[in-house]
Simulated assay, not measured.
Amino acid sequence: MKVRYLLIFTLITLLLASCGNESGADRAASENPRKKIVLKIAQNSSVNHPYQSGLEKFKEVIEKETDGDVEVNIFPNGQLGNEEQEILGVKLGVIDATIISSGSLAPFVSNIEIFNLPYLFRDQEHFYRVLDGPIGVWMGKIIEARINCIFLGYSSFGTRNAWNSKKPVRIPDDFKGMKIRVTDSPILLSTFNAFGAQATNMDWNELYSALQQGVLDGGECDVVDLFVEKFYEVTKYVSFTNHFIGTAVFIFSKKKYDRYPPYV
C-alpha cells in the first residue's frame, strides 16, 4: 500500500514539474517574440522592367514561406544608387540583395567579362545552357568570393541592339564619330570603339536626359528597355545588331545573411 501511494505521489510531482516547465517555456516565448526581418533589395531599372516582376515574385515567395517573419522591400529606379553602388552595398552589408548586369559587375569580377564578348551566344537557349551548366557554377563561386555574397542565380536582360538619333547603322563604319553609351564593360567599350564610335559609359538613369540634351547620339540595349525607358522618344534609328545577350546576376549579401536568426 505504501509503495502504491509513493508511486502516485511521484507521478503527481512529475506532472506538476512538467506543467511548470511548459508554462515557463510559453512565458519565455511570449516575452521574446520573433523579430520581423526586413530585406532591402535594389534594382536599377523602372517598375515596368522584368527585373521588378522577378523581384515581386521573390517577395511573394519569401514572405509566404517565412509566414510573415520576413518582409521584402524593393527599391527600383536606382533609389539606392547606381549598379556599382548597389554592388558595394551588398558587399559591405548595407543592402540585402540586388540584380546587376555583367557589365557593371566586371570592374569587381573581371572573369565575368567572358560573358560580355560580342556574339558569344547563338541565342537565348544557348545562353541558358551555358549559364546553367558547369561554366555558370564556376563563375558563381568566383562572384561569391570577390563580392562576399551569396550567388542566387542568373537571368538575361535581353538581346541588345544599337540605336541613335543620327542615321541608320547598316555596317560598322556607320558608327564612326557617334557618341554611343554602352554598359561599363571594357570589352564592350573596346568593341564599339573598334566599330568607330566614341564609346562611353554613363549612369543608366542619366541616359535619357543625356540623349535629350544631345550630349550623346545613342546607346545600346534590349527592346524591352527601349520601350520601358522610353528611349524611342529621343532616338530615331534602331539597328538590330544583336551584338550581345545581356547577363544579369542576382546576389545576396553574406554579411547581412550571417546576422539573421536561425528561424529565417
Rank of each mutant, 00 (worst) to 15 (best):
V215N: 01
G196H: 11
D217R: 03
D222A: 05
D203W: 02
N193Q: 14
V224G: 08
E229G: 08
L211A: 00
K230P: 01
N201C: 06
G218I: 02
L226Y: 15
F195K: 13
G218D: 04
W204L: 11
G214A: 03
V224H: 08
V215E: 03
L211K: 03
L226V: 05
S209G: 00
K230R: 14
F192N: 06
F195V: 05
G214V: 02
D217E: 05
G214R: 06
D217M: 02
D225V: 04
A197R: 09
L216V: 06
G196T: 13
G214E: 04
W204C: 02
L216P: 03
D225H: 12
T200I: 12
Y208E: 02
V215F: 00
L211Q: 01
G196K: 10
K230H: 15
G218P: 02
F227M: 11
D203Y: 01
T200V: 11
E220P: 01
Q212G: 03
Q213H: 06
F195S: 09
W204Q: 05
V224W: 00
L211H: 03
N205S: 05
L207A: 08
G214I: 02
N205W: 04
M202D: 08
W204D: 03
F195H: 10
D222K: 07
F192K: 08
E206L: 10
Q198T: 13
G214H: 05
Q212M: 08
V228P: 00
G196F: 10
L207T: 07
L211N: 01
K230W: 02
L211P: 00
Q212I: 00
A197T: 04
A197Q: 10
E206M: 09
G218R: 06
N193P: 12
L211M: 04
V223H: 12
E220T: 09
E220H: 06
A194T: 15
E220S: 10
F227T: 12
S190Q: 12
A197H: 09
L226N: 12
V224P: 04
A199Y: 05
E229D: 15
F227L: 14
Q213T: 13
S209R: 14
S209D: 10
T191Y: 15
V228I: 14
Y208T: 00
V228Y: 08
V215G: 00
V228C: 08
S209K: 14
C221A: 10
A194G: 15
G214W: 05
A210P: 01
A210T: 02
Q212F: 07
Q212H: 09
E206D: 09
S190K: 15
T200P: 00
D203N: 14
E229Q: 15
M202W: 07
K230I: 03
C221Q: 06
M202P: 00
V223F: 11
V224C: 07
G196Y: 10
E229S: 15
D217A: 01
E220K: 04
C221L: 05
Y208V: 00
D217V: 00
F231A: 09
D222L: 01
F227V: 13
L226D: 05
E229L: 11
K230F: 05
W204R: 09
D225T: 10
C221E: 09
V215R: 11
F227A: 11
G196Q: 12
S190C: 06
